[in-house]
Design a protein around this nucleic acid. Structure first.
Lengths: 204, 204
DNA sequence: GGCTGTGAAGAACTTCACAGCG
DNA sequence: CGCTGTGAAGTTCTTCACAGCC
């Protein structure tokens, strides 16, 4: 039985809250507290967690370590994922640096670009290679997640290139909608669209 | 009658497709074509557009210019919105540069940071000022949208600061969930959370 | 004839109320 | 007695089928 999509979007939220609770030495939480931290309803939270199995103890709440492990394992956050970034402009560089702060959940392994000025420079400890070298690097390096931070014109080509080398899941930040069909998962995170939604809400 | 939230998230998508069609000289589209471009179902699209009024002509489809104007006006995309960016690292710089490509829909007016190395430098034609000067600049400059691209530690403080100077809508890219209550709209766009969702889907 | 607009059916998610267990 | 787990009710969004208009 697959998890409802909205539940999946909330699990990372819960995980982050549990991380914080764990760091501050807590050992258990009740649904009300955790729900408030995550900004969702307590009913909703309990339903979400119930999908994952019987994780709580009635009367006292949820064991933080156990819950954290369970959610981590479901999300795949207990492994290290290789990440390849295409497009090493300001955006790509920002993500490259961010990845080193994700405590071994995500490891930057490859940076690609086509700009001769950037090739062979080192960003966040990784050498920038030309797109041409993608095949060799990605296939031997095992499964990767992809991040696309190229200009909009080349985003779709890059996405197809990544897919052709076995990258099934990617994040696209270029202001173009990319859809590679059901075999590949592309999450489009378009700042322009976000801004338009802000402006709508700003108009009452 | 307010629009359903899912519809609102799709309108910017439609608008972008209409922009493209308009540029390539088309004058009308039918729901099927437009739906495919936007990656949604044709039924869904027609329902969305029906919320906005009777915009199509039966038998031939939708007039592109008219539809574009209508959606633009609803989203507020026919005005120019002032944007203030807090945190001028790689991420902030990338957004600053991006804004100049949004053809007058969004105008970068203010850059704020606290790093002495960045203060008084110029990025995308705008001088970087200290957070202390926010009040004066934002209040006299009129309504603004805010973008938060600071490190996570300072993101919440910055958000509150922005809100205190009348910025009601913001985009937060720091990996911290920010919620300022119902009076302010904060959209949290957290790359870390997106990556976790990718890894979930990658695990089948 | 072709394509939109729409009420009705259906699916998905959220909220509720309380049973069930520690 | 407290808090979770869950079937049922309620709500919201999507899909459908076709009437309505060009």
């Amino acid at each position: 039985m697959p998890l409802p999509e909205p539940t999946i979007t909330r699990l990372p939220l819960y995980l982050r809250c549990l991380d914080r609770l764990h760091e501050s030495g807590e050992v258990a939480v009740d649904s009300q507290t955790l729900a408030q931290m995550a900004g969702v309803g307590a009913h909703n939270l309990r339903k979400d967690l119930a999908y994952l199995g019987n994780l709580g103890t009635r009367g006292s709440g949820y064991d933080i370590v156990h819950l954290r492990e369970t959610i981590s394992s479901i999300l795949g956050a207990d492994r290290t994922w290789n990440v390849a970034i295409c497009g090493v402009g300001n955006l790509g560089t920002a993500f490259a640096k961010y990845l080193s702060s994700t405590q071994d959940r995500f490891m930057l392994t490859n940076l690609f670009d086509v700009d001769p000025q950037k090739l062979d420079t080192t960003v966040a400890g990784i050498r920038v290679l030309h797109n041409d070298q993608m095949g060799a690097r990605l296939i031997e390096g095992g499964p990767h997640l992809g991040i696309i931070s190229t200009p909009p014109e080349s985003a779709l080509d890059v996405a197809r290139l990544l897919a052709s080398y076995g990258v099934r899941s990617m994040l696209n930040f270029a202001p173009v909608h990319i859809d590679l069909g059901p075999a590949n998962l592309v999450r489009n995170v378009d700042v322009g669209l976000h801004l338009l939604m802000l402006s709508y809400h700003e108009m009452l």
